[in-house]
Design a protein around this nucleic acid. Structure first.
Lengths: 178, 178
DNA sequence: TCGCACATGTAACGTGTTACATGATTCA
DNA sequence: TGAATCATGTAACACGTTACATGTGCGA
């Protein structure tokens, strides 16, 4: 199973076939940058995906530059990518892997299935409520002897989660039923 | 220089001397859990800290259980820990390392210096405004042809940052100037 | 005596980071 | 001709993950 970086690469070439260099530029220039734009990460990741049969790299010598390798997802690659997108949203992911969830959402258009995206957002919203409730009860259990910072740090997390929950609720309307 | 996990360990034993097992429990039971509670991470991290002279582990056979090793920060360890806490808040950290910033804040009481904590929050708040402004202009540059998800994913990040900025502003009052 | 909580570790593995290496093409 | 940009990669290293190994003492 690919890593987040692998899925990000898969997602980008799913839309448009690209070389490793092109991919690096996308990472460098967009908010995807969190998933690293260093050649030491991207080229090995592409090689792994190719070895696993999830992408195919085709040399392009049309421009007589040093040959580019243009990557495309294979049938298997598309299948695995879509399965990744369609996974259930778990509480675990929400508290330990939020970045991955947002990565998945960002690529959700590849599914071309408003119902699936709606489900994603609904699951996210309700998962968030649960995680928020957990944190609220954790907050209650912080003894008075703890420094303010402890409570405030928890509060910071809470506020981010609340913002996310509002966002998820508001976003559902962009994927109407029918 | 220790990793985030190393600093988290340093921060916990700074307050109360503890064994590796105790530390694991703290990680398992609190929101710190993001920094891993697996023995394969914690024991090697403690060993590294000890080799670097930042902590000292003293065997405790008082209870005749399998001997505990109680860890304490060394003078060097305290110095490095406080230097870490006192670091400037950079835009880079805000966009690529937000977790570490919150970890730092959570341990800020070790500094016992309201001025430093105020400075941290002020720098965080103003850094956040800048990062938010950057994202807003990035959002403007997303072509219409992009799927809604692209814009919404960026929006999700924005809302989290805005929530953080509000939190930072509101939190400053807990650290009054004298 | 069986299992559980206490307590500490090691080994294999994958992956990301940084830094370096290589080479073609364009343009001043 | 020399620098910048295009383009792909490798090598060393550190770290975290998972899984396993080992052993003590207590209570049912």
């Amino acid at each position: 199973m690919p890593t987040n970086l692998g899925f990000a690469l898969l997602g980008l070439i799913h839309k448009t076939a690209m070389s490793g260099y092109d991919l690096r530029k996308v990472f460098a220039e967009t908010a995807l940058g969190n998933y690293s734009s260093s050649p030491g990460a991207i080229y090995p990741a592409l090689a792994r995906l190719e070895k696993q049969g999830l992408v195919t790299g085709e040399e392009d010598r049309s421009k007589s530059l040093r040959p580019k390798k243009i990557y495309r997802p294979s049938a298997d690659g598309k299948k695995i990518f879509k399965a990744w997108l369609s996974q259930e949203v778990t509480k675990y992911d929400i508290s330990h892997n939020y970045h991955e969830l947002m990565l998945r959402f960002a690529f959700h258009d590849a599914l071309d299935d408003r119902k699936a995206t709606r489900r994603f957002l609904r699951e996210l919203a309700s998962g968030l409520e649960e995680v928020i409730a957990d944190l609220v009860s954790q907050r209650k259990m912080i003894p008075e002897t703890e420094p303010v910072q402890t409570r405030l740090a928890l509060e910071a997390g809470l506020e981010q989660l609340r913002a996310s929950a509002r966002w998820a609720h508001n976003s559902i309307r962009y994927f109407p039923d029918d």
